[in-house]
Design a protein around this nucleic acid. Sequence first.
RNA 1: GCGAAAGUGGCGGAAUUGGUAUACGCGCUAGACUUAGGAUCUAGUCCCGAGCGAUCGGGUUGGGGGUUCGAGUCCCCCCUUUCGCACCA
Length: 833
Amino acid sequence: MSSQYDHKAVEAKWQDRWERHRVAETDLRQAQGKYYMLMMFPYPSGDRLHVGHGRNYILGDALFRYLRMNGKRALNPMGWDAFGLPAENAAIQRGVHPRDWTLANIKVMKEQFKRWGILYDWGKEIASCNPDYYRWNQWLFLRLLEKGLAYKKKAPVNWCPSCQTVLANEQVVDGACERCGTPVVQRDLEQWFYRITGYADRLLAGLDQLTGWPEKVKTMQRNWIGRSEGGEIDFALPSLSEKPEKPEKLTVFSTRPDTVHGATFLVLAPEHPLAARLIADLPERGAIETWIEKVRNTPRIQRSAEETPKEGHDTGKTAVNPATGEEIPVWLANYVLPEYGTGAIMGVPAHDARDLAFARQEGLPVRLVYHPEGVEIDPSSLTEPILHEGVIRNAPPFDGLPDGEETIAKFVDWMSAQGFGRRQVAYRLRDWLISRQRYWGTPIPILYCDNCGMVPVPDDQLPVELPYDVEFTGREGNPLSRSKAFVETKCPKCGGAARRETDTMDTFVDSSWYYLRFLSPRDATRMFDPDTANRWAPVDQYIGGVEHAILHLLYARFICRVLHDFGMVGFEEPFTDLFNQGMITRYSEKTGRIEKMSKSRGNTVSPDILIEEMGADTERVYTLFIGPPEKEAEWSDEAVTGAHRFLNRLWRIAERLSEAPPTAPAPTEAELERQRHLTIQRVTYSMERFHGNAAVASLMELLNSLSRALDDQTASRLRCEETFDTLVQLLHPMAPHITEELWERRGHVLTLLESTWPAYDETKTRRARIPLVVQVDGKLRDRVEVDADAAEPEIKAAALASEKVQEFLVDRELVRAVVVPGRLVNLVTRRSA
RNA sequence: GCGAAAGUGGCGGAAUUGGUAUACGCGCUAGACUUAGGAUCUAGUCCCGAGCGAUCGGGUUGGGGGUUCGAGUCCCCCCUUUCGCACCA
């Protein structure tokens, strides 16, 4: 009578039921709630959804179901990060409109989620490419513009020749485009920026409060912000000054202003604004200009690589070291970067490795101002800089100060008093470049009027809609700028002819606040409802890959603070807990290596085929069982069958439950009951840590025990049924379809999802009599059975009574017995005298 | 170079946080049922040695030291891998 488990029928039945009954819907008017947002919103470019990424969604859904069964009001919304370059590129390659292409992909992905049995609150679905979403990007842009937090400026920016657009610094990975891998080049362009640098300190300080974030991500953000305290120092440039009494100044930044006495030259970035004037009168000016151009066009990674040879040119001009009064040469060199600090440094070769290398190369003087042992050495023999954590001690303000009292801050104070320097903090963080020269994004709500200049689009004219009817002729230029209907408009101020801004926004603008829109997705009057936002947000648990550590997660933190400052939310951090998931890897025929699963690498497993053959539950269980979620995991095609067999065994056990005898001997039954409690404990513990692999393993063990009990007839029918029910409940987050079906067939009225997560009794996880481990000198020698609550003397006596133990005690005397009640006893001996 | 994490059978990995290492699964071996099986079931499977055998002894968590009655777990040194940073003044 044993019927084969028909996964297709069962999965179709429950997926349909979940959809029709909208089981994942959450009423946001509830007074309190935990907002478990379980993943990044996916990017429907067509190449992002595959088994590897399915791990996020499957884990998220398992967690969601687990929370629901525990009575938590979790919200599991889903939306689409629909804009972006890959979508536009893919669409162009296929001759499809990006919008049609994206919407078709969304449809496919929704189907995929359904086939995986993933529950989303589709009533809160959003898509960033819809005007009712992106109008709020525009609205927020205008608010930032009002506050001076959005601005346009000409700057050297990263240009991806393949994507035909600029990129933010965060999107340049190892000098290449984050999306397509093409090396980026530098270009001087007028671009829109968000002033994230104004929030650098707060973004940095906030990291310390984020106890629920992985240290790794916080470190990456700290490095990215790159805060350095130091000082600015002014050097007079008499040779460039027309009036000697009011000399021109050159300001440098240094984290070690206390080394100023050792500054024997200045170095400017070739891009420095003063560079042209400094070389204007030189005979070799043309050659230097060519060299500047070359340096400017060197890709940034190469330029800032340590191995890159230092190249420099003497300007023939001098500056005055304000601390010593000495005239020192002024150079241009490629190792000084224009965008950091002031784009100019003082060269202190005795105390800085880079300056020393440059000084040796160019024959510049070296002056030592300090040696920790007070040793007099010839500066010309110095091969390594003298580095010192404290302040350079023979600097003037510290004469007479006791050790330990000197600080760089004090030195800067002295410098300020002298009038040539001040405290300064430098950041590596640059402003966020948000404009893109592409069609498929949020139009920037700006007009250019011949009379009025740059004019922001008034709020009541939002959204500035992206026109559908646009020609995608080729890859040169922004298609949007060729749409007359879009570009040509009227100035809201004077009514005259005006042209629209044709740059669109970076997609990371969309994702920087989407978690708030989920909470009031249909609100036509506001970006989001602040009351609901404050009740549900910040997000309690965020799950996503580490690849967003300094992109999405930094931008979202920035925008959250901006919204906080606008009085729109009452919190500064958007995500309380962050869990980084490891990716799934697989052997790639194409490259011959084990790599992250992706279509471009040709090493994906089609979810469709897997689901067709083995079922969604098999895929879910295997995906969780493959390994701990924080680690990356290698997909194994054979190992999937383990999960499949497990579910098939579970199905067959259900049909064998009636074979159990009505009654069974109590002691053997008690063992099954003990295992049931133990399994609840273990699975609960594992789920709390997202360790689905350990949870599944425990459940396999319980199934093995139940199977054995049925084979041996050692448990009553009631006990077997109870064990089975618990097993099915605990397995539900991982394998929702088969468990709901079995639960229903067992005659339960409520669905599993509505049932309460089983509770365990700690006392029942323990045996009445336990096999006590007996060690002699730390080595396992025997096991003796004792009462679980046996007292120390009793345990000791039982241990010594063991014959095997006695053998090991021959010729030895007992020094001590370490008794760990309920676990083991360790007899410590030494040789008898 | 600097910083972080990790290293457990043939493979993925477990070990409830200092207390029986190798659970669970894959693979493999033998057998059963099958026309057949990439289906299912049963038994075995860390390494070395002894024994026909149930068993017995020894060793083992990258290597070496240390703390402890007791270490996969804590501390120190080294090796390897992965990730992050790297001319940021």
